[in-house]
Amino acid sequence: MAKLNLALYWASSCGGCDVAVLDVNEKILDIAAVADIVLWPVAVDGKYADIEAMEPGTIDVCLFNGAVRNSENEHIAMLLREKSKVMVAFGSCAVSGGIPALANFKERDEVLKRVFMETPSTVNPEGVLPLTRCEVPEGTLSLPEFYKYVHCLDQVVEVDYYVPGCPPTPQRIWDVVQAIVSGNLPPRGATVGATEKSLCDECKRIKQNKKVKRFYRVHEIIPDPERCLLEQGLLCMGPVTRGGCGAQCISANMPCRGCYGPLPGVIDQGAKYISSIGSIMDVQSPEEVESLLETIADPAGTFYRFGMSTALLRGANR
């Protein structure tokens, strides 16, 4: 059997998804046995020019992580889409914007001003900002355009499969690789590497009575490690988040932050969570609702921690 051509790319990302792929450990040798890696900036030496020179469809599978923050991210996404038979949105940023999309709560120009002019470690008395074109004595230099809005991958190109997680866990990555190699993939558009049920379904904590009188921030209580975190007043996103992550956060006695994304059929994870906690609030009057909601420190940033590119409410920039 001919070897597969595999590309792994990071757009606006942290590299954690790439490291998660390496965290399959010695199985990376099994991947190398069945696939040639044609692009993987963190680990091998492919250049954009090599990809541009390929015929369309040369790449069998592209695992694309990172959000689309600037024009280079979009350009490479379109390039890899053209050259790839199967395009996979890999990790929370590519699936729904992820942590970089928290910037959708801010205006684009506020971000640039803060970063390049205001931070205490910055000395920039002339207020120089990055330019997309810059003339130097030797020629013209170019930089990508910093977009107004952080997009996820399927907002700029067609995506065949989604692998959620920040990052996807190595075991789930291995499952996905095996499915690709064996050709045993579900219909296009499916989410793979995650379960179809909520994290609560695989959470072993004791669930008794969901009646919450107030919410707590994680430093305000030491939660009982045996009992449901949400019942103890911690804002655990488990009820509205896909399982498959191995429940790592809740195993460390920390609430789920929702990185595996919404359940099947749900388009807005944060809105679903508002509905979910609305049903467990133990309140009798509008005043009690108000005071209970005041115990939530950062509702938008918590409920949309990984999903601001796909949120129905588009933040500051739309």
């Binding site: 606006s12 942290c14 954690g16 923050r69 600037n70 280079e72 992820g98 942590i99 970089p100 928290l102 910037a103 709560f105 801010k106 506020e110 971000v111 640039l112 803060r114 970063v115 931070t119 990055p130 930089l143 990508p144 910093f146 920040c166 921030r217 994680v218 430093h219 932050r257 420190a297 950062d298 940033g301 918590t302 921690r305």
Partner: peptide, 24 residues
């Protein structure tokens, strides 16, 4: 050729959540 802007979008987030944000 990259910028995400943690310097800005961390503003408004609860301090106890920052370890799980800036680790990215």
């Amino acid at each position: 050729p990259e910028l995400r802007g943690f310097e800005k979008f961390c503003e408004g987030r609860p301090v106890e959540e920052l370890p799980r944000i800036v680790s990215r």
